[in-house]
Write a protein that binds this DNA or RNA. Structure first.
Lengths: 215, 215
DNA sequence: AGACTTTCTGATGCGACGTCAGATTCGGGT
DNA sequence: ACCCGAATCTGACGTCGCATCAGAAAGTCT
């Protein structure tokens, strides 16, 4: 995710060596670990350095502020997000096979989200709050997937006047939303299996585009 | 939203009088105003009291902590959320009329979200982070709507084995997600009109339930 | 071993937090 | 009009995290 043009991670101008990169990574790892236990607002830089066994000053040698670490953490995750494309391209999307593809997409996405929940939580959070860097990152993370999905939609509905990217974007948003708010469904007495089923259907409908009466 | 059983708002045991309630409200108003300009993590209690022209100590007389104000603010909004039911019940959901109903639901929901964006942002945020109070509040806020939608779905698909509440919940989640991340679509070159159209269709499909091939 | 660079740290000024004890304002009774 | 008790507000304080700096420690090269 970092610019390939500047493969060197700069501190405050310097280019870190082995040791430096190691402690940088340690800070990243501790951040991830803490993120799983601590709500975003309570995550203090001091906590991270304490966990990493360094002084707070060391932290600022590698990251300008808290969001910078989070961004770095998120970039690692974003890279993995690209692989979700495999759940979309080169699959059947018509008929019974289409439903099965939708099923696998939903499950794959939920799994991805479950694995990286703490990180994705923060990305969602900060991009909702209007932070451009995180909003951009979120787009990048879901971009490949959305484009792939849009392509399938375009092929199945060649003469639809609605931009397939819009439909794809909405579907991906749907997946992200439900994945993030899974626990919200416990409050009603809804079995998650049914939620999953509902998502599968919506994805299937979104991709195949059943007939809609003209207004 | 406050318990009808204890209509008195307590400070630390006390029951505030006119003046007290006035400053309490002033604090609430200032919080709302600040919320529109400040990201959640940077919202300091000090800022609120400064804006309200009181001492920080006064704040703690009415709210135990920052989240308590936010909760109070959100409760006001949640109350209004109930009115969204009007966009669902007693409307046609079949055929062309159904599409029009979906259209009005989408527009109404987007409007509601736009009006209360700062508040809803925080509710989403904190409930995502696992705060029970906010998660509950979020459910309550969307509850009436979801139930109403589920009822329509149930009537249109009497012998569907998937719980209509699941489908309704997913649809409402979809609406909330897109409403919250509207600006995310700017990054792709998608006209929001197309996004809106995609949402309308998905709602229509979700409610009417087109045929899905068996796997 | 010496000289230089990289990396780390303890100490520091600043600002927000949350809590007192005490000052101020209000409202009703005479 | 005055006073008194209750309600309400406040300035000041100890604690803690932030972010920075000058200098110590560890590493590297010859």
């Amino acid at each position: 995710m970092s610019d390939a043009a500047s493969p060197l991670r700069a501190v405050d101008g310097r280019v870190p060596g082995r040791r430096g990169l190691a402690t940088r990574q340690k800070l990243l790892d501790c951040t991830i670990a803490l993120l799983a236990k601590t709500p975003y607002r309570d995550l203090k830089i001091t906590d991270i350095t304490r966990a990493a066994g360094t002084s707070p000053a060391t932290f600022y040698q590698y990251f300008v502020d808290l969001e910078a670490v989070l961004l770095a953490v998120a970039e690692q995750t974003a890279e993995e997000g690209r692989e979700l494309v495999a759940l979309i391209s080169n699959r059947p999307w018509k008929g019974a096979g289409g439903v099965r593809s939708a099923e696998e997409l939903v499950d794959g996405f939920l799994e991805f989200w479950r694995t990286h929940r703490p990180t994705l939580r923060v990305v969602d959070l900060l991009s909702t709050e209007g932070d451009r860097r995180f909003r951009h990152l979120r787009v990048v993370m879901l971009n490949a997937m959305t484009k792939a999905l849009a392509e399938e939609i375009r092929q199945l509905n060649p003469d639809d006047e609605v931009d397939p990217m819009a439909t794809a974007g909405v579907l991906v948003g749907l997946l992200a939303q439900i994945a993030g708010h899974q626990s919200g469904f416990e409050a009603w007495d809804i079995k998650f299996g049914d939620v999953r089923e509902a998502m599968i259907r919506l994805v299937y409908w979104g991709v195949t585009g059943p007939k809609v009466p003209r207004r």
